[in-house]
Structures are given as structure tokens and as C-alpha cells.
Design a protein around this nucleic acid. Structure first.
Lengths: 116, 116
DNA sequence: CATTTATATTCAAATATAATAATATTTGCA
DNA sequence: TGCAAATATTATTATATTTGAATATAAATG
């Protein structure tokens, strides 16, 4: 199991609008840098910067195809996370009813959920 | 479906060692601030700051129990994400074999994965 | 072998995030 | 009403992240 630090690291790497779109695109298949540049509509150096971050954390890798670098997904957790993020959740989790298990929670007062 | 921006926002909110531990703890049940302070071993104001961020983005909510604030999970995606992050993935995703679908990829050269 | 194509790296400026310390607010109770 | 417990807010400082501009590198081609 990944350590807390590794889990945070992974989330931080995915948590960027360019990188999440880039990863969505790579779940569909291999892409070279100029393909990604066209798709993402950002500058080529910026694409390379984001690719470098993703590669640095082991999320993606590439192979050479002539002078192209063809990038692909490497970490198998990525498609799973991206899928969950796209899923629709209809209901909020139910507010716990009464008498929760907090260490100090012995008060008899109202227990309705407060709204601000 | 959440927009890209909302997905990034959610990931950024979870992607912090204190907040991920806090959320793990809340998946087990309701907790008041001083319970969390003890569990997280950080200062009370800092606990409140992290709780405020999580609440601001609709991830958690609370109800009053006397002078306690009892916090609980609200966004149903949280347990799912936390579960995936803890899952063990044995294998890396397979490197695509030959002839990938890149727009410019017409080169006949070697296609083995390069290692640095 | 010089040029072109594809991509990467470096640096600096702007912005965002986090922790700490100090203080404020709210609630229940004597 | 006044005090204490529980929690929140604010300001400050330190640090990290992001982008754009400029430049560098590496491979193929003529």
C-alpha cells in the first residue's frame, strides 16, 4: 500500500487542469508531444514541463519513434481515479443520526445538521 | 459529471497529508474538533483551518452537539477515492506495442521503450 | 556536416499554499 | 451576568507552484 506521502504526491501531480486533461487524453492511447500541444492548446515548452512532472513521479513514460517522443500511461491507478472523478454521485452521504462516537460527545442537545 | 475545474479542485483539497488523514478518520465516523486535534497531533487552529477548507469545498459538514462541532463526510466520492488510493496495483500498464495512433507517427524506427 | 524538426531545460516573475502566533467568537454553565 | 471550554479567524512569514521567455539538445534529412 502506498504511504500517505505517496498518495498525496500522486494526487498533487494529477490535480492540475492541464495534467488531468493530458492524462484523460493518454487513457485513449499513445500521443506524441506535438499531438498533445495541439490538443491542450498551450505552448510546447509548457507541455514538456507538465510531461516532465508526470514522468518524474512515474505516472507516464515514453518511447522514441524517430524524433517523436510517444508518451503513454504507466501507473495503473490513473484510469481508475479518472473514472471515479467522472462518475455521478446523486446523493450526499447521510448525516449521522444521533449519539455519535466522539470522545467528548455526551451532550443531550439538538442534533439537527446546522446550515450556514 | 463534474467539470475539469471541479475535479481538480477536489483533488487539490484532498491532496494534503493532514487532510487525507483527517478524511480517512472521518470515514470511520463522526469526530469533533478536539478528537481530531488529538488524532492528527497538530495545533487546534490548524485543525480548524483544514476543516474550513474541506467544508468550503463541500467535502464535509458538521452538526452542533452542545459546544462541540461534530464533523462528518458529506461528499460520497471521498470513500471511493480513499479506497482506490490504498489499493495495491501490482503491474505497470503495458507499454503500447507498435504503430501507435499518433498524428505524426509514421516513422519506421525502433519502438522499444527507452530507459534513462 | 549544416539545417530543420521535435522536444527539453533553465530562469525569473507572479501567484498560491501552509504553518504559526495571536486573537476572536460561541456556547453552556455557575 | 460572567467565566471557561471549544472552536474559528486573521495576519504574517515561509515555501512551493506555475507560467512565459529564452535557450539548449537530439535526431533525421538534404
Amino acid at each position: 500500500m502506498r504511504s500517505i506521502e505517496k498518495r498525496v504526491e500522486l494526487l498533487r501531480v494529477i490535480a492540475h487542469p492541464v495534467r488531468i486533461r493530458l492524462l484523460e487524453e493518454l487513457t485513449k492511447g499513445v500521443k506524441c508531444v506535438s499531438d498533445l500541444e495541439e490538443f491542450l492548446e498551450i505552448s510546447q515548452p509548457n507541455v514538456s514541463q507538465h510531461l516532465a512532472i508526470l514522468r518524474q513521479y512515474g505516472v507516464i513514460d515514453y518511447y522514441m519513434d524517430g524524433r517523436l517522443r510517444c508518451y503513454f500511461l504507466k501507473d495503473p491507478i490513473i484510469p481508475d481515479i479518472l473514472e471515479i472523478l467522472k462518475k455521478d454521485y446523486i446523493e450526499e452521504l447521510p448525516a449521522p443520526a444521533c449519539c455519535p462516537v466522539t470522545k467528548k460527545g455526551k451532550y443531550p442537545g439538538r442534533r439537527e445538521v446546522q446550515r450556514r
